[in-house]
Simulated assay, not measured.
Amino acid sequence: MELTTVAPDEVVIHDGPTVHRHRGLSPATTYEFDGLTATTLPAPRGDLLGTFATVNDVHFGETVAGLIDGAGEGFSVPAGTTPYPTLMNTDAVGEMADLDPLAVLVKGDLTTDGSPQQVGEFEALYRAAFGDRLHFIRGNHESFHQVHVGSSYERVELPGLLAIMVDTSRDGHPNGDLTAQQLERLDDEAVDSDVPVVIFGHHHIWLPGEDARTDRFFGILPGASEALQALIARRRNVRGYFAGHTHRNRRRSVPISGDVPYVEVASVKDFPGAWAEYRIHEGTLVQIMRRVSSPRALAWTDRTRGMFGGLYPAYSFGELGDRCFEVDLESR
């Protein structure tokens, strides 16, 4: 039994292939379900203005999960069956579509090696479902092969919120960066915006005192990370940075920018099989991590719990507060 998701009005518990959804609950209330204790999130401030969704690390074209640089125990599906990236993304798209979201933001690693076929598979599935509501940037699996897809910088205007997608990738490299032009434009957008701003990229942020300072850092390089953190500290209407890349659920903060969260959401392609719902309220943004919960998706993601010697869930799932939380949209 695993407490997966909490919202102001909902608790979701997974028990292997069985999903227990408890809905219509009261905010900020402790319940006991199925032998587990769960407390719903507080009631958001203000009316619900709209909902959008994000997903990342979709990896069309991948055939073996659980390998690092070709080493480790691999997990795959039999030849002639539905490839697991297709399976997981198809069922995630179905769940996201049930929200009728205002937008769907895909935060990079659309493919395994950036081939036209893999890009086409991604576009065929996501564009067919969401049309012009779909917005995406590339990740390192595209940029490493110097494939340019998506936008380098895109504004997504939502009710009461401005979402900005930024391509953090570097051609020929697995890690990320931000250019002076991108940072300048973000700064200008924050100055001009009369609504709160949230930023979405593929790579996660380097944090002082926690990550080693090196140009081999796997996320956004330290100098660019510090520049973004300084921008967020300076522009008080910027209320969060949201990434993928690490295939884990994690939320961190840095003293210079106070309570602003720097968030990573796990991959959709294997355990836990994640995507994120965002509810925009007047004054509050609610992140609710969802596990793709069709029977076939749960069968695959429960298999891939065994990746990396069975240690993967401790890394990828994160704490409940990393998965589901509220962001104060009021300027600091």
Rank of each mutant, 00 (worst) to 15 (best):
E2K: 15
T4E: 10
A7T: 13
G16H: 12
G16L: 10
T18Y: 02
T18R: 11
V19Y: 01
R21P: 02
R23G: 15
L25W: 12
S26I: 10
G35C: 06
T39A: 13
A43S: 14
G46S: 07
D47M: 05
T54Q: 03
F60L: 06
F60K: 08
E62P: 06
A65T: 05
A71N: 12
F75S: 09
V77E: 15
V77C: 13
G80P: 04
T81R: 14
N89L: 12
N89C: 15
T90H: 07
D91H: 14
G94F: 02
E95R: 14
A97R: 15
D98F: 02
D100G: 08
L102H: 05
L102W: 02
L105E: 08
T111I: 10
S115I: 09
Q118P: 04
G120W: 11
G120H: 10
G120Y: 09
E121L: 14
Y126W: 15
Y126H: 14
A128G: 15
A128L: 08
L134C: 07
H135Q: 01
F136Q: 03
F136T: 04
G139N: 12
H145R: 04
Q146D: 10
G150H: 10
S151Y: 11
S151L: 05
R155M: 12
M165D: 05
T168R: 02
G172H: 11
T179F: 00
T179V: 01
D188K: 15
D192F: 13
S193C: 05
V195T: 12
P196K: 06
V197G: 00
H202P: 13
W206I: 11
P208A: 13
R216G: 03
G219H: 00
P222R: 14
G223A: 12
A224M: 01
S225M: 02
S225N: 08
L228P: 00
I232F: 06
G244V: 03
R251W: 05
R252S: 14
R252Y: 04
R252M: 10
S253H: 14
Y262D: 04
E264S: 13
D270L: 10
E277M: 13
E282A: 11
G283F: 03
G283W: 02
T284S: 09
M289C: 13
R291P: 00
S293M: 05
P295M: 08
R296H: 07
A299F: 04
A299H: 06
R303H: 14
R305N: 01
L311F: 05
Y312G: 04
G321K: 11
D328C: 08
